[in-house]
Computed example of a mutant assay.
Amino acid sequence: MKRLNSYLILFLVIQALPAIGQTPSAGKMEYSTMPSEILGQDREFAVYLPKNYESNPDKSYPVLYLLHGGGDTHTAWPEKGHLAEAANQIIDSKDATEMIIVCPEAGKIHMNYFNDAEWRYEDYFFEELIPFIESTYRVIADKKHRAIAGLSMGGGGTLVYAQHHPEMFSAAYAMSSYMYRMDLPFLDPNDPETEKRQKIVEDNNTVKLLLNASSEQIEKLKTVDWFIDCGDDDFTFVPNMEFVDAMISKGIPYQLRVRDGGHTWQYWNSALYIALPHISNVMRECAFADK
């Protein structure tokens, strides 16, 4: 009998072992697709859902659209940037509110966030992606609770999107932004696809876009919280400083962080620990201002 009791106790301990050391429920990444009539194909995206999303079905959440860089896809922020791990840590520490984070895919075909004759990605983003997210997930669908951020190519996309649609976003957080054509040694000038992408980027030169903005447009841009984050060893450092100079010349408030680092995932992962709390605070202030 004693031996039987010992086996029973051992069995119960073994059964309990998987629960020992387990963390409470955490936010998680999901991967999905949506149809696009504008692009004529299904489009992939990743979405981070906070830990209380499923357990609190009556609650809606702010939303951040987080754009990847050139050569990557919607999986880059979750896998290379460790998005879920960073968001869980930041939210659990109360440094940011729970939010939904959407990572669109813009790298597998034409690798840009803008419109051209063959690929109307910007139209897709605003006319199809955002409405789809807002009808599929419990997001608070207004400017105060919607933000955009991105790195490199996605940083340039962030700044252009927020300039084209300042009525849509409370905050724009741009990391290591690729803002206009740069003749870089790792880009093949003889590749027609490279040249095509470079032309599209230059057609959407975000510095020129800001400098050419009308006084009426400038007033609208002042309703967005602008944050520029770039490493001091980054090859995009000079364009980012030019964008800051343009902001100053137009009298648009902004925040700037120049930190040690280059065009690396180590830098962008660390940027999440600044970006998510900052965006969260902007959303809180916008909501408070309306009360």
Rank of each mutant, 00 (worst) to 15 (best):
M34N: 08
V244W: 09
P57H: 07
Y121A: 07
T97C: 02
D290M: 14
I90H: 06
E98Q: 06
Y7V: 14
I200N: 01
S176K: 04
G107N: 11
F186D: 05
G40Y: 04
R257E: 15
S176E: 05
Y173H: 08
P24M: 09
V63R: 08
P253Q: 04
K51L: 13
E98S: 04
H164A: 12
Y61P: 09
L159Q: 00
T158H: 03
A117N: 14
D142W: 04
L272H: 10
N240H: 03
T97I: 11
N112Q: 13
F237T: 05
K199C: 01
G157T: 06
R3W: 13
Y7G: 00
D233A: 15
E44K: 15
D116V: 11
L17P: 00
E167L: 12
K220I: 00
Y61C: 08
S6I: 14
G231W: 11
I109H: 11
T23R: 14
Y31W: 15
F132Q: 05
R259Y: 12
P50K: 09
N88C: 03
K144E: 14
H68D: 03
S152E: 04
N5P: 00
P189W: 05
L12F: 13
L187K: 10
K196P: 07
E134T: 01
N281M: 12
M168L: 12
Y273F: 15
R259N: 15
V63K: 07
V224M: 03
I9S: 10
Y254I: 07
K196G: 01
Y53M: 01
L209A: 11
M247N: 07
D72I: 02
T264K: 02
I218M: 12
Y124P: 11
W265E: 00
S270R: 13
Q198P: 05
A271D: 11
F125C: 01
W119P: 02
V102W: 09
E37D: 15
E54A: 15
R120G: 06
M175P: 01
T33C: 01
T33R: 14
S280D: 03
A84K: 08
N52H: 09
G154V: 10
G70F: 05
F11M: 13
D92L: 12
P62I: 02
L211D: 15
V201N: 07
C230P: 03
Y65T: 11
V201R: 05
D232I: 10
V63S: 08
L17C: 13
Y7S: 12
L17D: 06
M179Q: 12
R197A: 01
L210N: 06
P35S: 14
D203L: 06
D188P: 01
N205M: 08
M283R: 06
S270L: 13
S176M: 07
L211P: 01
A172N: 05
V63A: 08
M1V: 14
F288P: 00
L8G: 01
W226E: 09
L151H: 02
L10P: 00
L67P: 06
S177P: 12
W77M: 08
L49E: 11
A289L: 13
D225Q: 10
D42E: 15
E98M: 04
K59F: 05
V201P: 00
G70S: 13
S60P: 00
